[in-house]
Amino acid sequence: MTLAQIRVPEGTTETTQVKTLLAGLEIDGALVTMDAAHTCAATARHLVKDKNADYLMAVKGNREVLYAACKRLASALVSGGQTPHVVTEDDHGRIGTWTTWSTGLPPGAGVKLPHAARLAVIRRDIADLAGRPTSKETVLMVTSRAWMTSADFHTCTRGHWSIENVEHRPRDTVWREDDQQAYLGNGPRNTAALRNLALGVLAVNGITKITETVQRIGRDHDRAAPLLMLT
């Protein structure tokens, strides 16, 4: 559910607006996940020191020095004989296997990200139903939460990836947001807020068939009333 949104001022980027976005939210003790664009020292420091929360950040090539340090540690971790956490699922006509290794980050590990405590390597192997490999992806994750296990890394990282399916994807497939051509004034921001509100109402009511429900309400607006009568 979307709890807050702000407009990114012209000439800036999303990464500069983290403090503003989180200013009105109480996230004490929470684990905050984010896209790799937000993996930076300022955000890490703000979450831990100012918001008393923990972070789970993806490390990619956009942070070259940090990525190089994590990659060196990851290579040693994968080849070090640790028994990984493995999850295999058969879904959507394919077989997915997620293999996760994790390790602590001592002060001399070379990972220069404030409050970094643990590193994880997550490898996702996709095969067809006959078991023939079709793709492989490896991601590096860093967290400030010292007690994260490999299983925790797997669960929380996949939880972050699921945001695409439960929020971003419906906004495009149901309301075709990416095709909108209105960019003037507050229109796009207000429309996005209404779409987020609608998705939140559906989530609170436990509705997962979003397209079907929106189409049903579109034929009779009175059908939305029971969804809004919450106690």
Rank of each mutant, 00 (worst) to 15 (best):
I210N: 00
G187A: 08
G185H: 09
N165A: 02
N205C: 00
T211Y: 09
R171E: 15
T157E: 02
T149V: 04
R169A: 12
A198C: 09
L194H: 14
Q181G: 04
R176P: 01
A203Q: 14
V204T: 15
N190R: 02
G206M: 02
T211D: 11
L202C: 08
H168Q: 06
L199I: 06
G187P: 00
I210Y: 02
H154Q: 12
S144Y: 10
C156M: 13
R176S: 10
D172I: 09
T191A: 08
T211A: 15
R145A: 14
N186P: 09
L194K: 08
V204S: 10
S150Q: 02
H168I: 03
Q181I: 03
L194R: 11
G200A: 00
G200H: 07
P170T: 03
L197S: 15
A193E: 07
R176E: 06
Y183A: 11
I163M: 12
V204H: 15
D179N: 11
P188L: 06
N190S: 05
N205R: 11
Q180V: 12
R189M: 09
G159V: 00
A192M: 09
D152E: 09
L202W: 08
R158Y: 08
S162L: 03
T173I: 12
R158H: 10
R169Q: 07
D178T: 11
P170C: 04
R171P: 08
L202H: 06
A198H: 11
T173F: 08
A203K: 09
L194I: 05
N205T: 03
L194V: 13
A182P: 02
T143A: 15
E167S: 01
A193D: 06
L194A: 07
T143H: 07
D179G: 14
G206W: 13
A146I: 06
S150Y: 01
E164D: 11
R171D: 07
M148E: 00
N165W: 02
M148N: 09
V166H: 10
W175A: 07
Q181L: 07
S150K: 03
I207F: 05
K209H: 08
W147G: 08
G185P: 02
R176Y: 12
N186S: 12
D179V: 03
G187H: 05
S150T: 00
E212F: 04
T157G: 07
R145N: 10
I163Q: 14
N190Y: 13
W147Q: 06
A192P: 13
T157I: 07
A146F: 07
L199M: 10
R145E: 08
L199S: 02
H160W: 04
M148S: 01
A193G: 09
F153W: 04
S162H: 12
E177F: 14
A198M: 06
E167A: 05
W147H: 07
A146W: 03
I163K: 01
K209A: 12
R171F: 10
N165R: 07
I210G: 01
N196F: 05
L184K: 02
K209V: 15
V204G: 06
T157K: 11
H168S: 05
A182K: 04
G200Y: 02
H160G: 01
R195D: 14
L194W: 12
W161L: 04
R189C: 00
T143S: 14
G187C: 04
T208G: 03
E164I: 04
D178V: 12
K209T: 15
P170S: 08
E167D: 14
N196G: 00
D179T: 14
R195S: 05
T155R: 15
T155Q: 13
